[in-house]
Design a protein around this nucleic acid. Structure first.
Lengths: 320, 320
DNA sequence: ACTATTGCGGCAGTATTCCTTCCTCAATGT
DNA sequence: ACATTGAGGAAGGAATACTGCCGCAATAGT
């Protein structure tokens, strides 16, 4: 019974699971003649998958990297690993891929077998909470995927929302875009009950779920969603200009801090760090982690923040 | 020209890219009649993909979660996100999925288009180096994927190795298994030049690449690779039993530290943390991050470690 | 209760493709 | 030079894919 489609998928799976196969191996695995296999390989090539065949005694078929992305055929545990990795990436605040991470997470979540969801949850729990200080506002990947799907499919979403004053309300809105900003996520949506556009902080939503009702996308009263969020926030986020002298050479400093923290410049046999940070506590911890001797140049608030931290540690280390 | 396989893949892609589709929509997208579409859907179901169809005015086709993993059809940016997430997961030391992460990474690396590799590299560079202290021994994902593929396909690998004494040698070995251990990775391999089994620390390898030559797997002189590594290492890793009193309630402590750090128990209106840690510095930083008032109960070394950290911070915060 | 929408499945006919069995040729490493 | 391995053409018979038609069932909204 020649079922070609199933065989093609199986062939792709085989080609992904090992680097190189000979034609006879593949043919016997698939239960067809080698001539049919060659036809199938040609078919894959027509579909855009770059299968290279090398002749000779050490030859065989190999699946190469092509222009388009080939479908990933993952085992169960590999799928779990991808899910965990994506959740981490979505929360890591890596500029430029948060949104793609969430989209991939939504696709994966749609096809992930039920039995594996529990595993993902459990592993996520054992991940060390890499929160800086008491950062409670970690967004849940579930909420992100729900909102992402809702935006994509133009389906209303329902959720409970706790606003800045602490008041809790139930919402049912028409989602427009999910906007990442640093370590925060914002949902831009039209609230038909209030007949107005709103931005919601995703970490303040609860019990997010898809509603049945679809809707027609309305034009956003702004150039794009990101600027809309920025306008709404009034940009009150306080940021601090800081300068720190690091008592080490530029190479070590670069290796320790990487490019994301701030600007590093050599100054004699020390290194100067100039940066704009949102949280002084964060920088204090970063310096604590570094194991590098340092001196605060400015501002005064950083000095007191670090001194407070040091004092708390000293209290903890004091003999009873 | 009815090319059924291509259409099936396209159909799968469509079903993954949106939650719900009506039959007529799908049929017009694919350029076939609705009857043919129904046949194709039936075909997908035969292949094990759980496509649910709901009747009624709000009905349509949906791709659900099945027993087996459906192929992931990713856009370019989503693939990049997956790659970055997996690299992070492989190095995060999450017990139980490191190996699966690396396998998935190898599969992805095989089909990832060339133009995207640069993007992955760049993004990986901007990730904040979440190394604790001056942890230099981060393994490169490239080396991991090379070794993983080599183990899977039974192909020899070549690499340069710097051993504990600092001496550099070139190796060409028959890889057996890749063993994760905490944040380290070990390659268990048979070295035909020396006619003996060796374990290599992956972070000490350089320029790892696949050799052409295949080999027949030899039986490992141990129950499994993990125990083999453990025997070889003499298990010299020092670990510390620590106890800390946290001046907060159990709920807050659990939320802050999660289950991975150690055992938490209520003690009056405070919480006691008992844990076994490999690095006192790590625990000191963890306590610093927590923003919780605490008192060290034992051991004395933890006291001095924290006091040293506090002293360095105090020196840094002192006015010039 | 009624209606519009949407999915499900049978049937039959025609065109197409698929699979196999042959064959020869080309490239590669030993 | 030889064995191994991939590439591809030809031909014929079996299997299927695609379509258009039909009625039926389930669902949501009026």
């Amino acid at each position: 019974m020649p079922n070609s489609s199933a065989r093609l998928i199986e062939l792709l799976e085989l080609l992904q699971s090992r680097r190189s196969w000979t034609g006879t191996e593949l043919a016997s695995r698939l239960g067809v003649s080698t001539r049919t296999l060659r036809n199938n390989v040609a078919q894959l090539r027509e579909l855009g998958f770059p299968v290279t065949g090398t002749t000779g005694v050490a030859g065989g078929y190999e699946l190469g990297a092509g222009a388009r992305m080939a479908p990933l055929l993952l085992e169960d545990d590999e799928a779990v690993a991808v899910a965990v990795g994506l959740r981490t990436a979505a929360n890591a605040g890596i500029h430029g891929i948060e949104e793609a991470s969430v989209r991939a997470l939504a696709k994966l979540g749609q096809v992930l077998p039920e039995k594996l969801r529990g595993t993902v949850e459990a592993l996520q729990g054992t991940i060390e909470p890499l929160r800086w200080g008491l950062q409670r506002d970690l967004v849940s990947p579930e909420a992100l995927t729900v909102f992402s799907q809702a935006c994509r499919d133009s389906v209303q979403v329902r959720f409970d929302y706790v606003d800045a004053t602490g008041a809790s309300t139930q919402r049912e809105v028409e989602p427009h875009t999910l906007v990442p900003d640093g370590r925060r996520w914002y949902l831009v949506a039209f609230d038909p009950d209030r007949m107005d556009w709103r931005t919601f902080r995703v970490d303040r939503t609860q019990r997010a779920r898809l509603a049945r009702r679809g809707f027609r996308r309305r034009p956003l009263p702004a150039a794009d969603a990101a600027t809309f969020v920025r306008e709404r926030l009034h940009r009150q986020r306080s940021s601090h200009e800081v300068s720190v002298r690091l008592h080490t050479d530029l190479a070590t400093a670069t290796e320790t801090f990487g490019p994301a923290v701030g600007e590093l410049s050599a100054e004699g046999d020390t290194t100067r760090l100039d940066a704009t940070v949102e949280s002084l506590e964060w920088l204090a911890l970063r310096l604590a982690m570094s194991a590098i001797e340092f001196t605060v140049i400015a501002p005064e608030e950083l000095r007191t923040t670090i001194a407070d931290l040091a004092a708390r540690l000293d209290r903890g280390a004091a003999p009873t």
